[in-house]
């Protein structure tokens, strides 16, 4: 769980070995080094300043906010957190449900599809693969409006399905692209041995392929969780009933209700940001990889 890599040498990540430099990089003199540290720490402070501000404001009453808006004021009003949590716990649970359903769906269809495309030859394989991959060039702005029309025809407005199906259909594309490549890279011997023993296709998939690609599955999962948890615009179009709202549209409507009550509002923002940070503590290495793999995306 440590944030530090055990050994910064050849870090093997999900089948991709990357050389990392262990030697000192030439050209940085000690006093320059302190300058660089100072610069980076200032940048980090500025980058996180909105979060620091939210944290400071989350403990204030309105009076404290009017008198000292941007500094720490005592006493700290933890009751703001209780008040905010009373409203947004439901949205958080809804988000957990939607993200879990979408994740199970995406991983199921994309591991199955990636396995078939990566390990088997069959008529139409290339066509089907490129048909899926071509969708990487279709941006969300093109599909948003017609997708809403479709969701309406399916009577999925104000249901979680209106999020889950588009999330799976959007998430599976890049997942299949990655999984197919990793499935292709697996050694054939394991599969040969299994076939000699009369393994079915399902057994090959479940007992051999799936365990072997576990690292890349984790990377895909982390990447999707972050994107779906923080999604605002699509869920706020699909879900208008507070009963079903996920966290971001929930926080958005919470913002409307608490505009003049800054303490609980900021407490709500802080609470909403915490779950992913906790997840990060448990998956920091996968997360770094996951975000890196985001660099593949267009």
């Amino acid at each position: 769980m440590s944030l530090w890599p055990a050994k910064v040498a050849d870090v093997k990540t999900a089948g991709v070995t990357v050389r990392t430099t262990t030697r000192e990089v030439a050209g940085v003199r000690p006093h320059v080094k302190w300058l660089v540290h100072t610069g980076l720490l200032i940048l980090a402070f500025l980058e996180f300043y909105p979060m620091i501000l939210a944290l400071l404001m989350s403990f204030k009453t309105n009076t404290q906010y009017v008198l000292h808006p941007y500094s720490l004021t005592f006493p700290l009003h933890f009751s703001n957190y209780v008040e905010a949590f009373r409203v947004i716990w439901r949205y958080m649970l809804n988000s957990v449900a939607v993200v879990s359903m979408s994740l199970v769906g995406t991983l199921t269809v994309s591991t199955l599809g990636g396995f078939a495309l990566g390990r088997y030859r069959f008529p139409g394989r290339e066509v089907l693969y490129y048909m899926l991959i071509a969708l990487m060039m279709v941006p969300g702005v093109l599909t948003m409006v017609p997708q809403f029309v479709l969701i309406s025809h399916f009577h999925m407005v104000n249901t979680w399905w209106g999020l889950v199906f588009p999330y799976i259909a959007g998430g599976e594309i890049f997942s299949i692209f990655l999984l197919r490549q990793f499935m292709m890279g697996l050694s054939q011997e394991l599969f040969d041995a299994a076939q000699v023993d009369g393994a079915t296709m399902w057994q090959e998939f479940w007992n051999i392929a799936l365990p072997s690609v576990r690292p890349i599955i984790a990377v895909i999962a982390v990447n999707h969780i972050v994107g779906w948890w923080n999604d605002l615009i699509w869920p706020s179009i699909v879900l208008t009933n507070p009963k079903w709202m996920t966290l971001m549209p929930g926080l958005y409507s919470f913002t409307g209700q608490y505009e003049t009550n800054i303490g609980p509002l900021m407490a709500g923002y802080v609470i909403g940001s915490i779950p992913l940070v906790i997840m990060f503590l448990f998956t920091s290495r996968m997360f770094v990889e996951g975000m890196n793999s985001g660099a593949f995306k267009l």
């Binding site: 199955l112 599809g113 088997y120 069959f122 899926l132 479709l150 259909a169 599976e172 054939q188 076939q195």
Partner: peptide, 30 residues
């Protein structure tokens, strides 16, 4: 060497969910 001992319909069954979802929720809207 890659096995084709599996029946074709089974292979198609594996990719069917992905293709179906892509057709309905990606291609049709686009």
């Amino acid at each position: 060497k890659r096995s084709n001992r599996q029946p074709l319909w089974l292979i198609y069954l594996f990719i069917f969910p992905a293709i179906a979802l892509a057709l309905v929720f990606d291609y049709y809207p686009a």
